[in-house]
Design a protein around this nucleic acid. Structure first.
Lengths: 149, 149
DNA sequence: GCATATATTTAAGCGGACTTAACTAAAAAG
DNA sequence: CTTTTTAGTTAAGTCCGCTTAAATATATGC
């Protein structure tokens, strides 16, 4: 019980640490890139879901279709996205990253990874083994809670 | 070597997972609250650093003093922050969260913790022990890389 | 086939966050 | 004690992202 509380707190702390580093590094990168956070989040969504329609995006970004449509406009003009007709439904559009867009997002991800890779490098083989084991335990736990949702 | 690569990738994946859940849950919470992301990030900084001056904030948020001053203005009016004179340097201001502001930030943090706590609950005692060990290994590694910076 | 629903775009307009420049006041330097 | 530097505010103006409302075009239901 008392131990569980302590454990929960160190897990929380690690979530904080990962999140803070990630956000900080991403925000810095995006600011320097000249693109806005809104544009970045949109491209991130497209990256995560591969191609998707306008309404898929507005749903996940919790905003209106109109807003997404306008954002996509600018990103198409900037050559970061393509917007093509969905062959199965000619009302719908299929939004995809261009090569340039994909490179941009992947760079932003790599920036975040710099720190976590440093962390990995600081471990001995034995430590690495123990941490790997823990990560796979967490993987299992995640599958368990997601199947419940 | 080949194992290290694999390890690095699962660590990266966990950083992604934590970050994605965190950001998603925070963004949702903040949107529903009526405050803006800019206001939220500012209050988050104040929370992390306890009291701090305008220029401390603008430095960490990578923006101008003027921008921060105006944001703080609105948050003082909204009764989320106090802005008082620094007794040691009467040019400077000391920005602090009000009770209401602190509650808001702590709620936003608790929202993020819902998921990670579910994860913790899904572990057996033995699994918990192994994960706890791994987290303390990562703690040590972090101290090591931070002392190098 | 006609009415309705869906997917998206366009236009107008609002509010917010940011920038620059000028300003006030206090501290530090000489 | 004057000059310079530092901390912050204020004001004007810009740009961006968002919203609402109307429009277009395609798909679906009866």
């Amino acid at each position: 019980m008392t131990n569980s509380l302590q454990f929960s707190q160190s897990l929380r702390k690690w979530m904080d640490t990962f999140t803070y580093r990630s956000m900080h590094d991403s925000a810095r990168f995006v600011k320097n890139s000249g693109y806005s956070m809104a544009q970045f989040f949109l491209m991130m969504q497209v990256y995560r879901r591969e191609h998707c329609g306008i309404s898929d995006l507005s749903e996940h970004l919790e905003t209106s279709n109109a807003a997404v449509s306008q954002l996509v406009d600018k990103l198409v003009q900037a050559n970061m996205l393509t917007r093509t007709e969905d062959p199965n439904d000619r009302r719908a559009k299929k939004v995809e990253l261009t090569k340039e867009g994909r490179t941009f997002i992947e760079e932003s991800i790599n920036v975040r990874y710099l720190w976590v890779d440093q962390l990995a490098d600081a471990l001995s083989n034995e430590e690495e083994h123990k941490v790997a084991k823990a990560l796979s335990i967490l993987d299992e736990a995640m599958k368990k809670i997601e199947s419940r949702e």
